[in-house]
Design a binder for these strands. Structure first.
Length: 651
RNA sequence: GCUGGUGUAGCUCAGUCGGCAGAGCGACGCACUCGUAAUGCGUAGGUCGGCAGUUCGAUUCUGCCCACCAGCUCCA
């Protein structure tokens, strides 16, 4: 029976069942045949070399050839590169057992128990990677064709038992009964794999092994430690070089290095996970916090402050003691147990419950910027991005069920305002009910449904992140993309029907009856710590003027200009700007260099000419000398720039 | 927390095959008083991450602990 294909241009094509996607590509044109790496048939990505009759079961199937410009095409390409890696390792270390080799965001990895021919374990290090790459190059030069083989479960299991591949056997045993099991073969090497793959190894043009690290089999620390080889592959050498450049650039931008260099914060052994903020860092912090305050005041939020230390009964009532205790710092005094707050929500529930609430009082929006402490396992701490001391730009909105949609919409607008001003895009994930959760499933289903509805209403796409919700409610996670294209989870919005129940919160409705309010937990920056860390890397330390801890540094040419320099700085400060004077007895070139390295947006050089006429010679970060200007004009221009939150300094 | 690695001045890093601890940058002082990315000279600064052990003697060898780095897991 012939197979009917629906091509992307709307054309229909009938082919024999044994026809492959490669045949179709060749029939369309030689260029497409060379560029194609796989095909998408009826929504499923399949090998070019697979007979289409095997995958099209009835009716016409949508058919598209995938090239490396298609993300799914690139995945196939990288997946085959992972097999080439495995083949190379097998040649060099014949006793190696393989686990899994999946494609990840920027490449792939392969987990393996590396052993020599005699079975002796081999520890790989970065120095071994070039040798493995060289062997990969040989595999690619051999241009080995790949072939797919369908196997019966028992037969393939027996094959891997005989090969002495314990991980593969375990994978087979865990496959669902109805799973199609396939093997891919290239030259002397074969691997259990769902595919699809490139038609031959010679198609791989640009690849690189990036690192080797330990990883537990199945992520379980009680199971064997394997070695994970990370690598990546791109369509061209240029694309690979661009990727490697981003890696290098990321190292240069590391906030753990930039922060102390720019005098923003300190990380000390004395307080792991608790950063020390220096004046400049704290200035940046305050600018962000004040911005948040003004945005939230306009939205009708009220700011509160609640205790850092509260009795364990509160945490038992909120459910934290059962489900979050591992993450709390606790202490005992006078035979009483206390915990430092890891979240503000229970305290805000107490504030809500302190007064009788009417539907007319809602929404009640309580904001708090106080310090939280969470115990994070030592190995997970990472600069400002993963800390134990955290300050959320937190708020809890107590709303009636009818207000959920409008309040969610307002929160989503607030998120857009903030990230829009910073020029950062984001994508949204809906994190659903985890295995350990509070309350009943019906409430969870409702909350998850309401979140989806809010996203739809706001016209936002989202991806599902199953079982990643907070224990009290599902959440929206906003992953913002920085200047290097990396993603960070910052903002979060959670919908909670549980805590209002646990704290027996209610309001009097228009009907005179008691009703349960709904809580919306939300943070726009996420935490100040992480947000500042992300901003540091995003801007590489060169903050826009409005965020810059020091916006202008005034540089007197010599000692006799110091007083004038101080008066210039004072004028800027009067105008509400942050200005300093660097009157050290160093040459002007030296101080300009220092100011530039400190990423000062403006440098104002003053000498005899300027002092005589109330001028300052303006130098803009990264743009050099802009010539002399009246100080009042400089101040006015800077004020405008700050008020508009412009991305770049300069006129 | 687990696996592996690292820990010497504020920072980046030399060094000691077990015998008085070094550089550059930075800081501070003095001189220079300067026109747009590094002026010169000088000074201070270290229980060689912590605690034990071995030794005549430990920064160096051994053990335990702590912190950091990479990864796993977890997460704002």
């Amino acid at each position: 029976m012939a197979v009917e294909l629906l091509l992307p241009d709307g054309a229909r094509r009938e082919v024999e069942p044994q026809t492959t996607a490669a045949d179709v590509a060749a029939a369309i044109g030689p260029r497409l045949a060379r560029a194609a790496v796989a095909a998408r048939v009826a929504g499923r990505v399949v090998d070019l070399m697979r007979p289409l009759g095997e995958v099209v079961t009835g009716g016409a199937a949508e058919f598209a050839l995938l090239t490396l410009d298609d993300p799914q095409g690139l995945e196939v390409y990288r997946h085959t590169t992972a097999h080439v890696l495995a083949q190379a390792v097998r040649r060099l270390y014949p006793g190696t057992h393989f686990a899994i080799g999946p494609v990840i965001a920027d490449g792939f990895y392969y987990d393996m128990d590396v052993r020599a021919a005699d079975g002796a374990p081999v520890r790989l290090s970065a120095e071994d990677l070039p040798r493995i790459e060289a062997e990969m190059q040989r595999v690619i030069a051999q241009d080995l064709p790949l072939s797919r083989e369908a196997w019966e479960r028992d037969a393939v299991r027996e094959r891997f038992v005989q090969d002495g591949e314990p991980f593969k056997v375990e994978i087979i045993d865990d496959l669902p009964a109805e799973a199609e099991i396939s093997l891919y073969r290239q030259g002397e090497f074969y691997d259990l794999c769902r595919g699809p793959h490139l038609p031959s190894t010679g198609r791989i043009k640009a690849y690189k092994l990036l690192s080797v690290a330990g990883a537990y089999w199945r992520g379980d620390e009680k199971r064997p430690m394997l070695q994970r080889l990370y690598g990546t592959a791109f369509a061209s050498k240029d694309a690979l070089d661009r990727f490697l450049w981003v890696q290098e650039e990321a190292k240069k931008r590391d906030h753990r290095r930039l922060g102390p260099e720019l005098g923003l914060f300190l990380l000390r052994e004395e307080a792991p996970g608790f950063p020390f903020w220096q004046p400049r860092g704290h200035t940046l912090w305050r600018v962000l916090e004040d911005w948040s305050r003004s945005l939230q005041a306009a939205e009708g939020y009220g700011e509160v402050s609640t205790p850092v230390l509260m009795r364990s009964e509160l945490w038992e009532r909120s459910g934290h003691w059962d489900l979050f205790k591992e993450n709390m710092f606790t202490l005992e005094r006078d035979n009483e147990r206390f915990a430092i707050k890891p979240m503000n929500c229970p305290a805000h529930c107490l504030l809500y419950a302190a007064e009788t609430r009417s539907y007319r009082d809602l929404p009640l929006r309580l904001a708090e910027y106080g310090q939280l402490a969470r115990y994070e396992r030592s190995g997970t701490l990472h600069g400002l991005l993963r800390v134990r001391s955290l300050h959320q730009d937190d708020a809890h909105l107590f709303v009636t069920p009818q207000q959920i949609q409008s309040e969610m919409a307002a929160v989503l607008r607030l998120v857009d305002t903030v990230y829009g001003a910073l020029g950062m895009s984001y994508n949204v994930r809906l994190a659903t009910r985890p295995d350990e959760f509070l309350g009943d499933r019906a409430l969870w289903d409702r909350a998850e449904g309401d979140l989806v509805e809010a996203l739809r209403a706001a016209g936002k796409e989202f991806i599902l992140s199953p079982k990643d919700g907070a224990f009290y409610g599902p959440k929206l996670e906003f992953h913002v993309t920085d200047a290097l294209g990396r993603q960070w989870q910052c903002a979060t919005v959670q919908l909670d029907f549980n805590l209002p129940q646990r704290f027996d919160l209610w309001y009097t409705g228009a009907d005179g009856e008691r009703h349960r309010p709904v809580m919306i937990h939300r943070a726009v920056f996420g935490t100040m710590e992480r947000f500042i860390g992300v901003l540091l890397e995003h801007f590489a330390g060169a903050f826009p003027t409005w965020l810059s801890p020091v916006q202008a540094v005034v540089l007197p040419l010599s000692d006799r200009h110091a007083d004038y320099a101080r008066s210039v700085a004072a004028e800027l400060c009067q105008a509400g700007l942050r200005a300093e004077v660097d009157a050290r007895s160093e040459k002007i070139g030296y101080r300009i260099r220092q100011a530039q390295l400190q990423q000062m947006p403006y440098m104002l050089v003053v000498g005899d000419r300027e002092a005589a006429e109330g001028l300052a010679a303006v130098r803009v970060r990264g743009r050099g000398d802009q010539g002399p200007r009246p100080v009042s004009e400089v101040a006015a221009a800077m004020r405008r720039e700050v008020a508009e939150r412009r991305a770049e300094p300069g006129w």
